[in-house]
Structure formats: structure tokens, C-alpha cells
Design a protein around this nucleic acid. Structure first.
Lengths: 168, 168
DNA sequence: CCTACTTGCTTTGAATTCGAAGTGCATCTC
DNA sequence: GAGATGCACTTCGAATTCAAAGCAAGTAGG
């Protein structure tokens, strides 16, 4: 580095770059497998997986979008695709007529069950194979703390509008 | 998790999810700042930063694409945008007439210098603030090893290295 | 030289993404 | 209960992305 960042030392810079490259390569590899094995994009897999994991196999659109880092309109688009393929169903919420409940179908569950082993295998092979048990614990601890910190820090909703953010 | 993956324990699963969420949120935050402060996307920033860091402020398109995790055609598109804004120039290589040398202009260097402090600040605030010195070292070590492992492990469609061929 | 193959880059077309604007339900205030 | 305000979601338009196909410059073999 001819003139490194004035605020990050080389170890931090290296960690930052490594993080971005690792996540990028991992996502790329995983995406490739999901498309080959189940004709799913990573986003679609995340949506289905989150639904399978939900209490009744269903969630509101908003809660779904909050879980994934994704825009509302993008979720509408992907939900449309998944609906068309019969992997989910959409119905108005009984409580709130404006809410839409998204539910995994059996076909959706089957598909996730079908791709999950290979997915997990890829992740283990690429991410966890070169790790020791201590590595894993350390990584898990640090990333968990960072994630909590990021969630608590104004991620994007810094709207200079009337009204307080309801982060609490 | 109602039916955890048969190959990953809950600690691994948590680390995997945390990694993807952290990188996702970080990229999102950084991208947002770059657009607001310099009208640059994250990809454009990476391209310029890599050029500024290069020996003569210039690289071939291919070497640039290798550095960023990015498709060739995507790079052509972004290079077109950066060229139009006067942040880079493109000229045929003296050695290889089919190669294109990409060079940062002074305006490009100025822009990077302008956005870099804020960029670094964001990264430090979001990623490194909740870390101790030991955390950083651990993270750096683990991610460095994982990155090397990933680079050495061709996921499926091996990267077009010398000796391999045939995508058509 | 000439032909065949390889390499570096660009063009093209389809898919995906986001933010802004639009629609309709719900809640609050009077 | 009428109007104002806010929320959940969708539609729309523009930008960005990739893989496949195309083009031009280099290389090898005869």
C-alpha cells in the first residue's frame, strides 16, 4: 500500500479485505450450487429457508424482508417467482387486511430438503474445513458481537424526517 | 433451527449466518456512504482503489477483473462509466494491441482521496469498534487462512487459469 | 504466408435489483 | 364517522449484472 488508510492499520485493512473476499467467494460458490441443484438463487434459498424455519412455516412480507437484507420491492419480485413455481403461497392476513402472509408449500419444503445437504456440504468444505475448533469459536464470537453492534447502529434508516426511529 | 443441517453444528451454522449478515450489512453501509460522498458504487470504488494502488496507476482489464470478484463484461460496463466521468482513461497496450490499459486520472485519485477517510471511518465504526485487539488478530488469522483455502479450491467451474480452457 | 486456435475485450439480451410513486387498509383526532 | 396520517405491499422505471456470442489481435504449425 503506497498510502494506507489514515485510520486503519494494515491488520485491520487485511481483515476487512479478507472478510469481503471470503464472503464474496462463498456466496458465489453457494449460489452456483443452488442454481445447479435446485434452480434457486441465493436470495430465494434464504427466503425459503427462513420460512421453513418459521413457527408455522409462514411470515409476513415485512418480517421476511427484515430477516433478509433485501428491499421490499425485490422481495415482492422474488415472492412472485416462488409463488409461480408453487414453492410458496401468499394470502392476506386475517388480522391485517393489508399484510400478506407468505407460507411455504410442501413442494418448497421438499426443495429445501433436497438442496440443503449439498449446500451445507459446500459451506463446510469452503469455510470450515481449514478451521480448527478454536478458530470456529473465535470467529463465531467476534462475528456475533459485530452483528449485534451493526444491528444496533443506524444501518440505513437515518431519515431526517419527522418521527423517531424505533430501534428500541 | 427445527431441522438443522446434518453436517453443520449450531455453532458453525451461527458463524456462517453471522458472516453473511455482517458482510452484507457492511457492504450496504459502505456503498451508501460512497454514493452519498462521491457518487461511486462499491464496485467503482474497488476499481479505482486498486488502480491507485497499482505500480503506475494502471492495470490491464484482465488483471483488474481478477482482483475484483467481477465478470469481464461487468468491468467493461463500469470502466465505461468511469471513463465518461474522467476518472480513468483507457488506451491500448503498447505490447499487446488487444489488451487495454486502464489508468487512473488525477481526478480519480482526488476522488478516492476525498472518499477514503469517510469510507475507512465507516468500516472502523461498524466492523472494528466492537473488537478487541485479540479479536482482530483472531479474525484476521482465520479469514486469511480461509481465503487462501478458497483461492486454492476450485468450487466447480474452475477459474480460467493458464492451462485450463474451454468455456464454449 | 495461411489456416487454426487462443486470448483480451466488447456487445447483446435477459434477469435482477433498488428507490420512488401509487393503492388500499388501519388508526388516530376531532 | 370524516378527514388526516401512517403502514404494508405492489407497480414502475432506471440501473446494474451476468453469460453467451462476436470481434480483433496474437501464436503455432505447416
Amino acid at each position: 500500500m503506497s498510502d494506507p488508510a489514515p485510520g486503519l492499520n494494515s491488520e485491520q485493512l487485511g481483515a476487512y479485505f479478507a472478510l469481503m473476499e471470503v464472503s464474496s467467494l462463498l456466496q458465489y460458490a453457494v449460489d452456483e450450487h443452488l442454481r445447479a441443484d435446485g434452480d434457486l438463487s441465493y436470495v430465494q434459498f434464504q427466503i425459503l429457508a427462513r420460512l421453513v424455519d418459521a413457527p408455522e412455516g409462514r411470515l409476513r412480507m415485512t418480517d421476511l424482508a427484515d430477516g433478509v437484507v433485501y428491499s421490499r420491492s425485490g422481495l415482492t419480485y422474488q415472492a412472485g417467482l416462488l409463488d409461480k413455481r408453487g414453492l410458496i403461497t401468499r394470502s392476506p392476513s386475517p388480522d391485517d387486511e393489508r399484510s400478506v402472509m407468505v407460507t411455504v408449500t410442501d413442494a418448497g419444503r421438499d426443495l429445501i430438503a433436497h438442496v440443503l445437504p449439498g449446500h451445507v456440504d459446500r459451506v463446510r468444505q469452503l469455510l470450515f474445513e481449514p478451521m480448527t475448533g478454536k478458530d470456529l469459536t473465535a470467529l463465531s464470537t467476534v462475528l456475533g458481537r459485530v452483528r449485534d453492534h451493526m444491528r444496533a447502529t443506524p444501518p440505513r434508516s437515518a431519515k431526517p424526517r419527522a418521527g423517531r426511529n424505533r430501534t428500541d
